[in-house]
Design a protein around this nucleic acid. Structure first.
Length: 435
RNA sequence: GGAGGGAUGACAGAGCGGCCGAAUGUACCGGUCUUGAAAACCGGCGUGGGCUUGCCCACCGUGGGUUCAAAUCCCACUCCCUCCGCCA
């Protein structure tokens, strides 16, 4: 949620910032008008309330002095005012709810340097990385045996069984088996271990309350993109960002504790409601995938550092795995609702000849903290909203796909990067022919 | 799933219709004293909102209700604790 006080104080600044994200001036003016109306109603209902309280005190005093006649008169007057107040309060709440609803639907103010644009085509590529780039090597040319899509490799080696997954839960619910399942497990352990030096590992619930979903901005906007368990009022989390952002909901943190850095691997559930028919093959787009998330609660001053650290860690994982990738600065049109700035990492998948998003690092400024009411006490005793920053490191389904394609050998087997060996009992090959 | 007990400020813990936004203690901040510290003493010490910046309003788990007036009474829900049952 954006800052209403700021909107009130510098409407033109906020208006022009949100105009970059396609919010019309008319919408903003409507919000401002609601705010004016709300405050006027609030003043009136508070005035009435104050009077009722004052009269009630007099009733008590009159009673104590046994002046029942005065007491009854005052009580009658107070009752009338009370009726009036009830009406005023109802109106105030109705307008307040409307205002809040409008405010919740507004996106975050983008960082000044975020490029203008309509959609993903206007994102700006910042850099690319591949093995040997520093030594002057060109972008890798992939051989024929690497130009095989992962779903074919998976079937051939018996490590990915999409039909079995579909049988159990419908299409786009993958089932990994044998060494494929072990590889997935290894990737998660590998990443979590690398973040252990600075991030506390969390294993949160996979479901969250509506209130929790509101905090991150996933509700009310993205309800159709999430799985709901209506009977119990729960939603399946689309990312660990959801529980991590709400871990300190409603708290006032001591500034000495900041930044609080957390990491978690969870299953991520996505209905992909708007993506029917797109990227349906293999692991490109699935309803459930595992992802390690990095997260930080911090002061505004710490936000840049926290952001850089998360981005660096995500890149470092890709480099350790030897996968070619590029870094994008998302344009205003492709930015998530809650985000002020986002960098996507896309890995190059040779089997399908495409860049695949495997990480998204975002700075939310105080947008989520305002919804979730996460604050901190500064050294001078005042209270301010924290900033939240998070990023994936990494989303494993697409990494899994890219790994088996990139490291496929002429004989069809896979030789994995050595860094994974400790997590695979020393094994680095899949599908080696022993004969 | 059954029975009972509970939820009050950072923490502990009073209050159980009327100056109660809330006693008291601890912690914390400032001061006096001291060479310094501790102790002692004095003062301060929740959050959010509105406007005429001095006042007003809201908040005692959550949501309703009763009343002139609710932390206090009634109803529902949530969570925690104890016991029983079931269970990986």
């Amino acid at each position: 949620m954006i800052d209403l006080v700021q909107l009130r104080r510098e409407p033109d600044v906020v208006k022009s910032a949100l105009a970059r994200r396609g919010v019309s001036a008319g919408v903003m003016d409507a919000v401002l008008a609601l705010d004016v109306e709300h405050r006027a109603l609030l003043q009136e209902s508070e005035r009435l309330r104050s009077e009722v309280k004052f009269l009630s005190r007099l009733v008590g005093e009159a009673r104590r002095e046994k002046d029942l006649e005065t007491a009854n008169q005052l009580a009658e007057k107070s009752r009338q005012l009370g009726d009036e107040e009830r009406g005023a309060t109802e109106a105030t709440e109705r307008v307040g709810a409307l205002l809040r609803e409008q405010l919740l639907s507004l996106p975050n103010v983008p960082a000044p340097f975020v490029p203008d644009g309509l959609d993903e085509n206007d994102n700006v590529e910042l850099r690319q990385w591949w093995v040997g780039k520093d030594e002057g090597l060109e972008f890798p040319t992939y051989a024929e045996h690497q130009r095989v899509p992962h779903w074919e490799i998976g079937t051939e080696l018996g490590i990915l069984d999409l039909e079995a997954g579909a049988k159990l839960a419908g299409s786009m619910f993958p089932l990994y088996r044998g060494d494929g399942s072990r590889l997935l497990r290894a990737l998660g352990f590998f990443a979590l271990d690398r973040h252990r030096d600075a991030y506390e590992e969390i294993r949160p619930p996979s479901f969250a309350l509506t209130e929790t979903m509101m905090s991150t901005g996933h509700l009310p906007k993205s309800a159709d993109d999430m799985y709901a368990i209506e009977r119990d009022g729960l939603w399946a989390i689309p990312t660990a960002e959801v529980p991590l952002t709400s871990m300190h909901r409603g708290e006032i943190l001591d500034v000495a504790r900041l930044p609080i850095r957390l990491t978690a691997q969870t299953a991520c559930f996505r209905r992909e409601a708007g993506a029917a028919g797109r990227d349906t093959r293999g692991l490109l787009r699935v309803h459930e995938f595992d992802k390690v998330e990095l997260f930080a609660y911090c002061t505004p001053e710490q936000a840049d550092g926290a952001y850089a650290d998360i981005l660096e860690r995500a890149e470092s994982l890709l480099q350790a795995l030897g996968l070619a990738y590029r870094v994008l600065e998302l344009c205003t049109g492709d930015l998530g609702t809650s985000s002020a700035r986002t960098n996507d990492l896309e890995v190059f998948s040779p089997g399908i000849d495409r860049w695949l998003e495997v990480s998204s690092v975002s700075w939310y400024r105080d947008f989520q903290a305002r919804r979730a009411n996460v604050r901190y006490r500064t050294s001078d005793g005042s209270i301010a909203l924290v900033h939240t920053v998070n990023g994936s490191a990494l989303a494993w389904a697409r990494i899994w796909a890219t790994l088996v394609e990139t490291y496929r050998q002429p004989d069809g087997s896979i030789i994995l990067p050595d860094v994974l060996a400790p997590y695979l009992g020393g094994q680095t090959t899949i599908g080696v022919r022993t004969s």
